[in-house]
Computed example of a mutant assay.
Amino acid sequence: MTPPDYEYLRKLLKDHSGLDLSADKQYLIESRLLPLARKTGLSGIAELVAKIKAGSSAHTVQVVEAMTTNETFFFRDKVPFDHFRDHIMPEIIKARANRRSVRIWCAAGSTGQEPYSLAMCLKEMGAALTGWRIEIIATDLSQEVLEKSKAGIYSQFEVQRGLPIQMLVKYFKQTGETWQINPELRAMIQHRQLNLLHDFAQLGTFDVIFCRNVLIYFDQDTKINIFNRLARQIEPDGFLVLGAAETVVGLTDTFRPIPERRGLYRPSGVRGVLAMPKPAMAVGY
């Protein structure tokens, strides 16, 4: 791949998805896009770039999806789900006792392991949520991964990563070499295609927002912008859950960390106040 083609693809990805690849990540683009080019009958990345420059929106979508399909697995990192079960939901249940409803947004739902992990946590709470209205909205940039999430079908390898055996037996049905999550849990998740760079006000307000392992790929200004917009979509007493390598500290005053609970934040009541920006740094995979 020539340097001009690489720079063109870097800009394309930044503009369409927020993905901010550093100058030394050419190998990553080649490893993801060379198979894509060949699969679509093209000779290589140069021809793929030529198609996009000629106005092929289909190839643009394919490139963005190939580069932004990120790894996920059930109960990933465990700690956020412990927080959800032991801290977030007990507080929400008390605070929403009259309303008896909870809205949760998985802002990078990917192939569904995160939203389904949350659905299983809620099911395990049993009688405490009887009669409650529960909404889990799972969004992702990639329509392809959303379709997999809707189907709720996973390989033996996928269900062995992070999923306790008792939950596999309780909530999944085996068909041949695959496992499908049961219809009751699938019905708990609403799927919508969404680019976090675009307006998401139409989603409404949420009690809990999981936005994990996606902001690490954005530059600093984009992170600040997204945090400030997330603050407008969360209830004043809601919870924001970030990935282990992500933080609001030094970026925005709209959220404050909860002491002793890594990755967990609450709205500060300040809307859209920026911290002093630092020089933007490219963050790669």
Results as ranks from 00 to 15, higher is better:
Gly284Lys: 00
Thr252His: 06
Gly263Ser: 12
Leu146Lys: 00
Ile92Glu: 00
Lys123Gly: 12
Glu47Thr: 11
Arg38Thr: 12
Gly238Gln: 12
Gly238Ala: 07
Leu19Pro: 08
Ile136His: 03
Ala58Gly: 07
Leu118Ala: 06
Ala128Arg: 13
Leu12Asn: 04
Arg266Asp: 10
Trp132Glu: 06
Leu230Pro: 12
Gln233Lys: 10
Ile92Tyr: 00
Tyr6Val: 14
Leu203Arg: 05
Met125Asn: 02
Asn98Met: 10
Thr205Leu: 12
Glu47Met: 09
Arg229Ala: 04
Ser57His: 12
Leu264Trp: 06
Ala231Trp: 03
Thr60Glu: 14
Leu230Arg: 09
Glu124Ser: 13
Gly176Lys: 11
Tyr285Ser: 12
Ala97Asn: 07
Thr254Tyr: 08
Glu184Tyr: 09
Cys211Phe: 06
Ser155Trp: 10
Val49Met: 05
Gly263Pro: 01
Pro90Met: 01
Ser155Tyr: 05
Phe84Lys: 05
Lys14Gly: 07
Ala95Glu: 10
His83Ile: 08
Gln156Asp: 13
Ile29Phe: 13
Pro90Phe: 04
Leu34Asn: 15
Pro236Thr: 04
Gln220Val: 06
Gln26Lys: 15
Thr40Lys: 13
Met188Trp: 09
Leu122Ser: 05
Arg212Tyr: 04
Val159His: 08
Thr60Ser: 09
Asn225Pro: 10
Phe255Arg: 06
Gly18Lys: 05
Ser31Cys: 07
Glu91Asn: 12
Ile209Pro: 01
Val169Pro: 02
Val102Pro: 00
Gly126Val: 06
Ala66Met: 09
Ala50Val: 05
Leu19Arg: 03
Ile165Thr: 12
Tyr116Val: 00
Val63Trp: 06
Thr130Cys: 11
Leu48Trp: 07
Asp199Val: 04
Thr175Arg: 12
Ile226Leu: 12
Ser110Ile: 03
Ile153Ala: 13
Gly18Ser: 02
Asp237Met: 13
Asp253Arg: 14
Thr247Leu: 07
Gly152Met: 02
Phe157Pro: 14
Ser31Lys: 15
Gly243Asp: 04
Trp179Val: 00
Ser268Phe: 11
Leu34Thr: 14
Gln113Thr: 03
Ala46Ile: 04
Ala275Ser: 11
Lys94His: 11
Met125Arg: 12
